[in-house]
């Protein structure tokens, strides 16, 4: 294929990845920003979203789009509830101590993963896309659904931005982020805020997973990759900065697509990984962050 169309295709693929990544990473970033904890189980919330989507779509039946739409709403809500419960029963009791939280969330990672293995099984199962349309350029064909994923992700991210900047909830979140003790002094129920934020972060990951599951399949080990990538994105973007996170997601998603044009795939992955590491080494606060990590 000529370089032009190839780059176009690689960019479109990169954009899809960036969209899903942005949603997942914003969830992680929100949790870090407000609560100052690193949630290693974040990828498992992503996985939970996909698995729940399969279950819901499977139970609803009828046209694939009905099941998918139901899943799009219910799966993130359920995942968010699970996360909130985890926050209230475990993380809260750890007083959000950074190291303990990392260890506890590694534990939660295994618990969620293995519970899914016990109930859902070890298979990768597909969820049917709400519509199955493609378009063809002279060089390649492409699925409309993938473009819809990009659009949906942009809409959700705008929603998150609106909530954070224009609503009272956003104000409370930002206040808690700046200084949780002072926020508490002003009558904000910080514990409640934390439970909601942890749930919302997980719900965003689950939402991303529901969007991607018609393209990929739901599998109990699928959480590792999104976790790794969103970690990278959150750090590159500057910890806790939502805007930085989105920019970094686009950067990482797109570059992953485009680097693969010029290098053999595994070499591309090695280079991309090293690049991220070196960025962090020389810009430890991320490309857009100002605070100390």
């Amino acid at each position: 294929m000529d370089l032009g169309p190839y780059l176009l295709l690689a960019s479109m693929e990169g954009a899809v990845q960036a969209a899903v990544l942005a949603l997942t990473a914003v969830g992680l970033s929100l949790v870090f920003g407000v609560m100052r904890v690193v949630n290693v189980a974040h990828g498992e919330f992503f996985m939970l979203g996909a698995v729940l989507a399969w279950w819901i779509a499977h139970m609803v039946g009828g046209h694939p789009s009905i099941g998918f739409m139901v899943a799009l709403i219910i799966a993130p809500v359920l995942t968010g509830l699970v996360a909130s419960v985890i926050d209230l029963t475990i993380l809260k009791r750890l007083n959000y101590d950074p190291e303990s939280t990392i260890v506890a969330t590694i534990g939660i990672l295994y618990i969620l993963q293995q519970l899914v293995l016990m109930t859902y099984g070890a298979d990768a199962r597909p969820v049917e896309a709400p519509f199955n349309l493609r378009f063809y350029t002279p060089w390649f064909g492409y699925s409309y659904y993938k473009l819809a994923v990009i659009a949906a992700a942009i809409a959700v991210l705008l929603g998150v931005w609106l909530v954070m900047s224009k609503t009272r909830i956003g104000l409370i979140l930002r206040a808690t982020q700046l200084d949780s003790e002072i926020a508490q002094a002003f009558g904000i129920a910080v514990n409640k805020v934390y439970a909601i934020v942890f749930g919302a972060g997980a719900a965003l990951a689950a939402l991303a997973a529901v969007l991607i599951v018609p393209i990929q399949q739901a599998h109990y080990l699928m959480g590792a990759d999104p976790l790794l990538l969103s970690f990278i994105v959150v750090i590159i973007g500057g910890l806790g900065s939502l805007r930085g996170t989105v920019v970094a997601a686009v950067l990482i998603g797109m570059s992953d697509g485009i680097i693969s044009v010029f290098f053999t795939p595994t070499l591309a992955k090695i280079l991309a990984t090293l690049l991220v590491a070196l960025v962090l080494v020389f810009r430890p606060n991320g490309l857009f962050g100002a605070r100390a990590a």
Binding site: L9, E13, G257, P265
Partner: peptide
């Protein structure tokens, strides 16, 4: 000869490497 990394989850970007 297109070798796909084992952790890959999306493949479309590799198909253009197949000569016409």
């Amino acid at each position: 000869k297109i070798a796909i990394p084992p952790t890959e989850t999306s493949f479309t970007k590799y198909f253009p490497k197949i000569p016409r």
